[in-house]
Design a protein around this nucleic acid. Structure first.
Lengths: 249, 249
DNA sequence: CAGTGGTCTAGACCACGTG
DNA sequence: ACGTGGTCTAGACCACTGC
């Protein structure tokens, strides 16, 4: 049964690409798994090897798969180190990436506030999971962080004996949800009494506020997170390239 | 004379790509110019049309050229609007991109300080051009900005009757330098007396500090810029994608 | 209509990793 | 030695643009 049979206007390689993405999204192909080679995919969809190649290369450029010459093509795997490296953009005064620790994380389930519904694009009676923690560095607190997750997507997280340091690898491994993109909205604030106490600093200290929304493979919003960072001589690194996509949804 | 004659290990399409980049970098192909079609490029380098195509597609994915079906392939052109849209990441409370105005800009030439030499990767006796201005929005000041440029790259900028609102299109049009990437280091500070006066706000107001370094096509540093932004309910938007390059030079 | 980029195919050979 | 992805070629046809 060939995918080429219908008269759709979309290019063949694009339709093959979507079918392959769907297999990753649905979990038919697991993280780290070897996928069929170019000729097998070509035969399955009734296209030439070159067309299958173009579809696979598109996935590779999106980092959904990793190609290894001589070995094969593998579904991307979010490891804790990988997640930190890719999605944690804080650097110290020496321009080294900061690897933070997670303090005790408290998780609760609650009805979403109007603001949470707006950020997470939820319906009226949806529930959310809130995870609050203070992150440390060399044992010293430097970030207060509150994550809010749509409860239906992540049942049972609140009951875990311990919340991991990085959520995104848990999202992929336990819930099959792959974080593809984060939008961080950054602003400067001064520490209020509560923040100052939590971070061990003075009221009025400047803090970097990071308001993050994370998107999954299908563009669903899977996390809203607000962090207040006491960075000292550190900073947040944002790289902008001419080659970046231009659409700001 | 074919490019394929030597026994280099680099793929053919990569060598063709570099030759095409060199033509843009050197100014042999001007911004907005139509470049030769796939068959002409293939013939010139002694490769097949498919290989020329792969080289051109690489340039298109880097946004160095724009392909238009039925018309041809054109060298990218930095217009002021284009530059604002791509490299100015500030948004207002309604999540609309902020388009700032430039106040009066003062430019001076001076010997580089040690800090300027470090940021711009200059030698001991190099000079720099410093451009200071206060940017406004609806007539109200909201950013103080100091750009520092290597003087040898931009002779005569300090003598211009007026400094334009966006520097990067000037860099391309008048100096043949294409800005490819910016690294913004973001931190929170509080307004000192000078900043508060310039921005019409109170001492102690939180400001977003943006420490930017801009890179040209050949990875030279072409600008170091420090901005202090009084954003109110606005923010800086930083988008991070799984598909972003992973190397943090 | 001619000329451009876009898609698709078929096949050859190379480079790499593993057994 | 074998199977994988990586490169390169040659040619066909389609879709869009502008004259």
């Amino acid at each position: 049964m060939s995918i080429a049979d219908n008269g759709s206007a979309r290019p063949l390689y694009a339709r093959v690409r979507e079918q392959l993405i769907e297999r990753i999204r649905s979990g038919a192909w697991k993280p780290g798994q070897l996928i069929p080679n170019e000729f097998e995919i070509a035969a399955e969809f009734g296209v030439s090897q070159g067309t299958a190649r173009k579809a696979i290369e598109a996935l590779a450029s999106e980092r959904l798969v990793v190609r290894r010459q001589g070995r094969g093509t593998f579904v991307v795997e979010h490891t804790p180190a990988h997640v930190m490296f890719r999605f944690f953009n804080l650097y110290d005064a020496h321009r080294e990436q900061i690897i933070p620790d997670s303090g005790h994380a408290a998780a609760v389930v609650a009805k979403a506030t109007p603001e949470e519904r707006a950020e997470l694009r939820l319906g009226r009676n949806d529930k959310v999971i809130r995870i609050a923690r203070v992150r440390t560095r060399d044992g010293r607190p430097f970030i207060t962080e509150t994550s809010t997750l749509p409860e239906p997507l992540f049942p049972g997280i609140a009951e875990l004996p311990e919340i991991p340091n990085t959520l995104y690898d848990l999202f992929q491994k336990s819930y099959g949800i792959l974080v593809m993109r984060t939008d961080d909205r950054l602003s400067a604030v001064v520490a209020d009494v509560a923040s100052a106490a939590a971070l061990g600093t003075a009221v009025g200290t400047p803090l970097l506020r990071i308001d993050r929304v994370a998107f999954a493979l299908d563009d669903r919003v899977v996390e809203w997170r607000v962090s207040y960072c006491h960075l000292g001589d550190g900073h947040y690194l944002a790289r902008t390239k001419l080659s970046d996509d231009t659409d700001r949804r």
